[in-house]
Design a protein around this nucleic acid. Sequence first.
DNA 1: TTGACACATGTAACCAGTTACATCAATGCT
DNA 2: AGCATTGATGTAACTGGTTACATGTGTCAA
Lengths: 337, 337
Amino acid sequence: MTTKMGRRRANLRDVAAAAGVSVATVSRVLNAPEAVTQETRTRVQAAIDELRFVPSAAARAINSGRTRIVGALIPTLDNAIFARFLDAVESQLAPYRLSLIVATTSDDPKQEAEKAQRLVDIGVEGLIVSGITHSDVLYRLIERTQLPAIATSYFDAGYRFPTIGYDNRAAAEIALRHLTELGHRDIAVIHGPKHNNDRTRARIAGLKDAGLPVRLSFHQSHLSLGGGSTAANRILSSGKHVSALLCLSDVLATGALFTLRCNGIEVPRSMSLMGIDDLPASTFSDPPLTTVRLPVREMGCEAGKALADWVEQQQVPQSQELWPELIVRQSTAGAAG
Amino acid sequence: MTTKMGRRRANLRDVAAAAGVSVATVSRVLNAPEAVTQETRTRVQAAIDELRFVPSAAARAINSGRTRIVGALIPTLDNAIFARFLDAVESQLAPYRLSLIVATTSDDPKQEAEKAQRLVDIGVEGLIVSGITHSDVLYRLIERTQLPAIATSYFDAGYRFPTIGYDNRAAAEIALRHLTELGHRDIAVIHGPKHNNDRTRARIAGLKDAGLPVRLSFHQSHLSLGGGSTAANRILSSGKHVSALLCLSDVLATGALFTLRCNGIEVPRSMSLMGIDDLPASTFSDPPLTTVRLPVREMGCEAGKALADWVEQQQVPQSQELWPELIVRQSTAGAAG
DNA sequence: TTGACACATGTAACCAGTTACATCAATGCT
DNA sequence: AGCATTGATGTAACTGGTTACATGTGTCAA
């Protein structure tokens, strides 16, 4: 009954005392068991078990100077696109024995800065952020801590830190080009909030600068199924002639599709519909959604690997461009007339 | 030019030396600025800025004995149901200044145990796991570390640690009852892998034990849209008479719906279809999906809060049952004949 | 003038590990 | 027998913060 009632967690010294060895020996049993005799090893192990000793992570970290934690700042988890991105990141981190802390920002720079600060306080060794528009607070933080940081969902070779992502302008342009090639000239664009969201802004800019022979009208809504649905409703009830709906995210398109169906508008016969993202669900909708595939999973993998290599081997990664790809399914067709 | 070229990160002592004060004073500037004269404070601050000093999280943790990190073990992030659960958890943790590490297990107990060990190594102060079936390794780990742990997605008041979740048997039974009340007698059940998944097993058991006047056939598939789709295909091509499809997850139902549509089978006229979960997308499908709502967001909030209170105030939470709820939409109708 | 007290600051012990180096015994080789 | 070498273990100095306690200075009242 050596178990002390003083409920302090046992530490190395306690174990050493209990086993009748020095702290160094206990430490060796933990980190280099082969350097210790079988006999003392078992004795120490017994003490460890009896005292329910669990080594302190903090004490280890202080010596190694490492926490083996990286952080990701994303707008939300409640959107398949970010969730699968993170899923990919996490899967790449595991082999490096790095762990991932997730912090959501709701696309709010202030929240982002706060949570970034907390991540730094925790001692993350690297950071993944979404997009390339961030508060000065965040920039200063990264600069002063010299923290490896990678921006994703956006490609910009000239950015202050490496970006791994795609060209949002191009993605939108690909979609629009597809619609114009089908003969659409009056297109309504449904997009999520522009405020604090450079991906959305870039996509809109890509549309405007594409120089294609179309009349575009823009309709902002929440980035959700409901948002897409109500935006489509607004468009329909406006009475303006439109032969195609271009949604800047698949969620919006799925929402819009619902409204179209409710109003008896056949897709693609009476209205073409496009998205951007290529969510798994887009293959299984009715009709299957024509969209522009954004390689989020690859992006997650690449970002995870790049950050891990940076953290582990001081290998500053190159910015890396991934390519959006037109996926023609059945929600688009030639414009009537 | 006091910046040393020796690229070691500056520490408290460096700052103290640079500012010509003691370490205690620097520490005070950081943690209790009001206890220091305005004048020395600015001097110290200048040194901090110049040396780009960032306090070591590990060193702080070693003193406070706290990491302010909790961990969550979930099967995958690439499924809306877990993603939104985590989104909710994270949102609750933020006000407590706790951070969340996410580890995915692919429903594999070995991976779960490994990742749990890593979480403990990192020094998490609490743990959230999915379901109530886990490897002994995990149990021993939790027992020896005395780590606050909460199991979710399952309610079992007698479990070894608190559960916050719903009765999966009941959820399935609710669904089945709805179908039988509509007169369905031949029902095909589509479910995800049973192996290592007690939620699925409980739902199946709930169906079998319901004692309702039906003939059930069971069809296992991947827990994905594609899985639901191919399972539905198998059912259709088997030629057996079935008037309703009961999917034990909404993803499966959405996949099955796709197949039904492809085969020109009208829902609900020729075939009723039900899911369990109530994903956001289920409201916007065609037809909108009748389902059993599982309160995942609430579950995330409650689990987050409960764990935070446990960690912060040693308040061991009660197990908490949340109630599944039948959501009748338009994918179910009376059985023909 | 002196004691009491507040206030700013410094000293050094502490947290819980790791690890360079020292010690010591046992073995091997000449 | 004597010396070098190997292997197991111990000692104590680190890591980078926090903090109890000590010190020193200045203000005020008796």
